[in-house]
């Protein structure tokens, strides 16, 4: 595999895990625009643990994910006091505070960034991305996943039906924190260098867009969104600003034509084999 392709694949794997981290909360109806902040914490934690503290790679990745899970858990309580536009703003503020803090802290290299001496290979990333993807499909099939979907569709109705909305949302934030932290840890250990400027507001915006454009109804959504936005531009070799211009136009068009995302539950049920091979069913719809 060429170095170029390996680089693209590495970024794809990291973005996919990152996108699933944002997806978990979005699937439960919460929009997290502070993704870069969570990812930065994971990246810096893993980098510092593996570098300065001398922990083995696996331990530092696990610890980093645990730390961001804890951050997600803690941040969920103030964040869940807010709703709608306010939650977008609160999570956005969180991301900015984290980036500002890391930029200002000398232990982590400040504006100079931090070199991470240890390295994980591409196969670890691919394995992790595959594992996370399968885990999310499993999660969406469990009672918790069902509860998340219910809250997203109608919060009041799910309360009436006995869903513990608060617990589900806190769980979603915790899982989301762990996954975004994991993506950050893998980023740090694969690229060998982290700098606070990378984890900016635009990164949070882009990853949220992967998820919302892909679709929040099923676990296929982030996969579709990430493939669509990280692999396609590479395949067509569109570079620089033109690439982002097309990205923007696609977003506006998608919202106009298919506002629930690329993959919806309706699409999946239409494509499912049971439906296709059912007698007469395929013609019926």
């Amino acid at each position: 595999m060429s170095g170029y392709l390996a680089g693209v694949l590495a970024i794809f794997c990291i973005n996919l895990i990152f996108a699933y981290g944002i997806f978990v909360t979005a699937a439960a109806g919460q929009i997290n625009l502070g993704g870069a902040g969570f990812q930065a914490i994971g990246a810096y934690a893993a980098g510092w643990l593996a570098g300065q503290a001398g922990l083995p790679i696996a331990a530092s990745i696990m610890t980093a994910a645990l730390i961001t899970a804890l951050v997600g858990l803690l941040i969920s309580f103030p964040a869940l006091r807010t709703r709608g536009v306010y939650m977008v703003l609160a999570t956005f503020a969180f991301g900015e505070v984290v980036a500002g803090f890391l930029l200002h802290t000398d232990v982590f290299g400040g504006a100079m960034g931090m070199v991470v001496p240890l390295h994980v290979d591409l196969w670890v990333l691919v394995l992790a991305a595959t594992f996370v993807t399968l885990l999310m499909f499993f999660l969406m099939a469990t009672r918790l996943g069902l509860a998340m979907r219910a809250i997203n569709d109608d919060e009041d109705a799910s309360v009436v039906m006995g869903v513990n909305v608060r617990a589900v949302q806190v769980a979603a934030f915790t899982i989301g924190g762990a996954l975004t932290g994991l993506s950050g840890a893998l980023y740090a250990l694969n690229f060998g260098f982290v700098e606070a400027q990378y984890f900016n507001a635009l990164l949070s915006i882009y990853v949220l867009l992967y998820v919302l454009i892909g679709g929040t109804q099923t676990a296929w959504g982030p996969l579709a969104g990430t493939v669509f936005f990280t692999m396609l531009p590479e395949l067509f070799r569109v570079g620089g600003s033109a690439r982002y211009l097309i990205f923007g136009i696609v977003i506006v068009l998608m919202m106009a034509l298919r506002p629930e995302g690329i993959v919806t539950r309706a699409l999946i049920s239409r494509l499912s084999p049971r439906r296709l091979f059912a007698t007469g069913g395929a013609r019926g719809n």
Partner: peptide
């Protein structure tokens, strides 16, 4: 979230 996402799209379009 449609208008929000659309406006993010326009942000990217205008800037680029």
């Amino acid at each position: 979230a449609i208008p929000l996402v659309s406006s993010l799209g326009f942000l990217i379009i205008f800037e680029n």
